[in-house]
């Protein structure tokens, strides 16, 4: 696997949209070709080379390409957006839409990311050592097709509206999570090692939430349905099971309704 290193040399005054920062878009290009590619700041089109130094060499295909980003990318959006394969390593923080619509490959962020990371993700892996903003792994605004496959791991805290309209895949959160988790979900799994605030699984019809910490306010639509001992994320514990959201339409299997499950550690 060949590595290209992109280092920020000048912070843009406004936010910079770099939807070409993916192995798919850069594979097979030389460093000086990459520096000539367009990026957007508002309605103006500028060059990658104006803001970043590019070194190294890409692989002939995206599969054999690793992109390493060094520096402060908090004014850069869309890193790894729509990537389908290859690898992205980001040493620093980034702004919105990291790994949004990604369908494969691996992104490692040694830092924190902004909002809308992994929007409507449909495959691959996203690992974040810091925190993530709001709408992690959620559907795009208005859309009913959220994260469907893949895995997201966040070591730190996550903002609100995580996993909205999730239908599959897994999100594991090391820290705490803000309100609205798995709203409208119809599948998938969210593991929260820290604490949650409120509205876990609101309007969800399927899917599972595992909560190791505390929840401030439970949804009224969830009812207790027994206890179970499980090993989740390598930790063995006893959980209380809740079925919900009772206010929603639920699919049935063998005549019995299928519910979203909320597992609270005892």
């Amino acid at each position: 696997m060949n590595t290209v290193t992109i280092t920020i040399k000048k912070q843009p005054d406004l936010f910079l949209e770099a939807d070409c920062f993916t192995p798919d878009a850069l594979a097979g290009k030389k460093a000086d070709e990459i520096a000539e590619l367009p990026v957007f700041i508002g309605k103006t089109v500028e060059k990658i080379g104006d803001y970043f130094t590019v070194s190294g060499e890409t692989g002939p295909t995206a599969d054999e390409t690793r992109l390493v980003f060094n520096g402060d990318f908090t004014k850069v959006k869309y890193i790894g957006a729509k990537m389908s394969t290859g690898e992205v390593v980001l040493n620093g923080d980034a702004d919105m839409y990291v790994g949004s619509w990604m369908s494969g490959g691996k992104i490692t962020v040694n830092g924190s990311v902004g909002h809308f990371a992994a929007t409507a993700m449909s495959g691959g892996e996203l690992n974040i050592t810091g925190n993530a903003g709001n709408y992690l792994g959620a559907a795009y605004r208005g859309d009913w097709r959220g994260m469907s496959k893949g895995k997201i791991t966040v070591a730190g805290n996550v903002g609100s509206d995580c996993a909205t309209f999730m239908t599959g895949g897994e999100i594991e959160i090391g820290g705490n999570v803000d309100v609205h988790v798995m709203t409208h979900a119809d599948g998938g799994k969210v593991i929260i090692h820290g604490n949650a605030k409120s509205r876990l699984g609101g309007q969800a019809t399927r899917g599972e939430i595992y909560l190791f910490g505390t929840v401030d306010v439970m949804m009224p639509g969830y009812v207790k349905a027994g206890e179970t001992e499980l090993t989740i994320g390598g930790t063995k514990a006893v959980f209380t099971i809740y079925d919900g959201d009772q206010g929603e339409r639920h699919p049935t299997r063998k005549g019995l309704p299928i519910y979203a499950k909320l597992y609270l550690k005892k």
Binding site: A139, Y140, R141, G142, D143
Partner: peptide
């Protein structure tokens, strides 16, 4: 207004 996702299906032409 109620379908922001409709704008995603095609690119905004400048």
């Amino acid at each position: 207004t109620f379908r922001p996702e409709d704008k995603l299906q095609s690119t905004y032409a400048p």
